[in-house]
């Protein structure tokens, strides 16, 4: 984890109807870091992700990727949506290969087959998406984003529609894929457990207008034991910050003091 990978400078987004979805977001994400954006509904988490993906344009400020200012969808940025969004007329194999149009056929086959192995769906390669369960479809969607080897991977609550058991298994699949190329990951979630399971840092956001309330480093060793005390403590810390962000909308967080307190805990 060294140089900056992704940075937001005074990023703001105001929609045509006057809604201020994001106001003055400043944040840097390091290479290979997993950052969880967490916050109540309407705090602009998804808007932020859509700006990075190039699906919406920012009203002010800029996003930099390795120093380059982003304008529109970037080849090094991949995204997994809340819904699988698979193309129903393509087989599982072709769905995963969808973004690999500039790659030779042999290379494409190798990459997709490898991804299928990682998500445990090799035997379903020739099926239609409609034949898969919700969890399997989301796995295909994750594989589709990974095969293009993105430097930045955006995850927009990709597990929120799944049951807890499936979600836990998908976390494993995700980390398995992530460990191969270690892309920078920005994960939007409203599930604190999920943030603590996956992320190196939790960024707590606050609504109206959407802005950053606090940042909490999550320095637990991987693989993380969900039942251990450090895990529980981290979850509680994030929950407390989240609670504050919702209860005291105007209150400025005392980040330094929180950090020191956190440091003392360890």
């Amino acid at each position: 984890m060294g140089r900056f990978m992704l940075s937001f400078e005074h990023l703001s987004k105001t929609y045509a109807d006057g809604t201020r979805a994001l106001a003055d977001i400043n944040l840097t994400v390091h290479e290979g870091e997993i950052v969880a954006l967490i916050g109540g509904s309407g705090c602009g988490k998804t808007t932020l992700l859509r700006l990075i993906a190039g699906l919406d344009r920012e009203s002010a400020g800029r996003i930099r990727l390795d120093g380059e200012v982003l304008s529109g969808p970037h080849p090094a940025v991949g995204i997994v949506f809340q819904e699988p969004r698979l193309l129903p007329w393509l087989s599982v194999f072709d769905n995963i290969a969808f973004g690999l149009s500039g790659v030779s056929a042999a290379e494409r086959k190798a990459r997709v087959t490898h991804a299928l192995e990682k998500i445990g769906l090799v035997e379903h390669a020739d099926r239609w998406p409609r034949d898969l369960s919700g969890g399997q479809q989301q796995r295909v969607s994750i594989a589709r984003a990974f095969v293009t080897n993105p430097k930045v991977l955006l995850l927009d609550e990709p597990f929120s529609a799944l049951d807890a058991f499936t979600r836990a298994s998908l976390h494993e699949h995700l980390l398995g894929l992530w460990e191969e190329t270690r892309p920078t990951v920005v994960l939007v979630t409203h599930d604190v457990q999920e943030a603590v399971t996956l992320a190196d840092r939790a960024v707590v956001m606050q609504p109206k207008p959407g802005r950053i309330f606090d940042e909490l480093p999550l320095t637990l060793a991987r693989p993380r034991d969900r039942t251990g005390l450090p895990f529980e403590t981290s979850v509680r810390r994030v929950l407390t910050a989240l609670d504050h962000s919702l209860k005291a909308p105007q209150e400025q967080p005392q980040r330094e003091r929180d950090r020191q307190a956190a440091a003392l805990w360890w």
Binding site: G54, L55, P73, F81, E83, R85, L87, F98, G99, S101
Partner: peptide, 11 residues
Amino acid sequence: RKLVEVGHVFR
């Protein structure tokens, strides 16, 4: 629209 966005993401 969601499928069209998939197309946009892959440029």
